[in-house]
Design a protein around this nucleic acid. Structure first.
Length: 221
DNA sequence: GACCAGGCACATC
DNA sequence: GATGTGCATGGT
């Protein structure tokens, strides 16, 4: 079976199990961008606490974030972990935006390639964070690859162990029809599978992807 | 108590 | 270029 057909059938199976995920869960583009940085290597429930703190402090805005001292910002986002690192990254991002733009929507409303290239120059914004911002905040077509994506696709033989971010992204973009809603929900479905079934060092049971080829030899010998 | 979570930058070889 | 390490909270 072709890769395209496998990927689409995997989506159908996940979607049938979980329903449309309506990602990204956030109130506005800026909150998506903030969440994208806060969720780096971190459980989303911790990120939600940090976002709630920022909102309660009235700082979920470009000016609000700019007004905070490093220590204040770090304290507000403490629940998300890596709070000193992430405070710097949030500042880097927000100062970069504010240098040339008054509104986050204007910053985001540019061609994907231009935006992605620029986002990657911001210290603390790597490929996954940039793609999350482009897809879910800007609403433009780019595929988000994360640890779940790589693990699930590896276990199902769609990619090989040496594949890295850009090659996995390219595979998805070339085999899944370009559609912002589909790409966004595909990634969200993979996260749903990853959270519930496809864990490290554990065989999956009851996973909606079980009917698909599943080669675990590389991980379990 | 160990493991894991929607990464990224930087040091070192 | 490849590999290793620091960053940190909170849930299971």
């Amino acid at each position: 079976m072709s890769t395209s057909k496998i990927l689409l059938q995997m989506y159908d199976a996940m979607r049938a199990r979980f329903g449309h995920q309506n990602w990204w869960p956030a109130d506005g583009a800026l909150e998506v961008c903030v969440g994208a940085i806060l969720t780096q290597n971190t459980n989303w429930t911790n990120v939600q606490k940090a976002i709630a703190n920022l909102k309660a402090a009235g700082c979920m805005s470009i000016e609000g974030l700019c007004s905070l001292a490093h220590e204040e910002l770090a304290e507000l986002i403490r629940p998300a972990g890596y709070f000193n690192v992430k405070a710097k990254r949030l500042k880097n991002f927000i100062m970069h935006v504010r240098a040339d733009w008054d509104e986050i929507d204007a910053f985001l409303d540019r061609p994907v390639d231009t935006l992605r290239e620029e986002l990657l120059t911001v210290n603390g914004v790597g490929p996954e964070t940039a793609d999350s911002m482009i897809l879910y905040a800007a609403g433009k077509a780019t595929f988000v690859v994360d640890a779940y994506t790589a693990r699930i696709f590896l276990r199902h033989g769609v990619i090989s162990p040496e594949d890295e971010y850009e090659s996995i992204k390219e595979l998805c973009e070339s085999h899944i029809p370009e559609d912002v809603d589909l790409w966004g929900d595909y990634h969200a479905q993979l996260v749903a599978v990853g959270k519930s079934y496809c864990k490290p060092k554990a065989r999956c049971t009851g996973c909606p992807l079980e009917p698909f080829p599943h080669d675990l030899d590389d991980e379990w010998g």
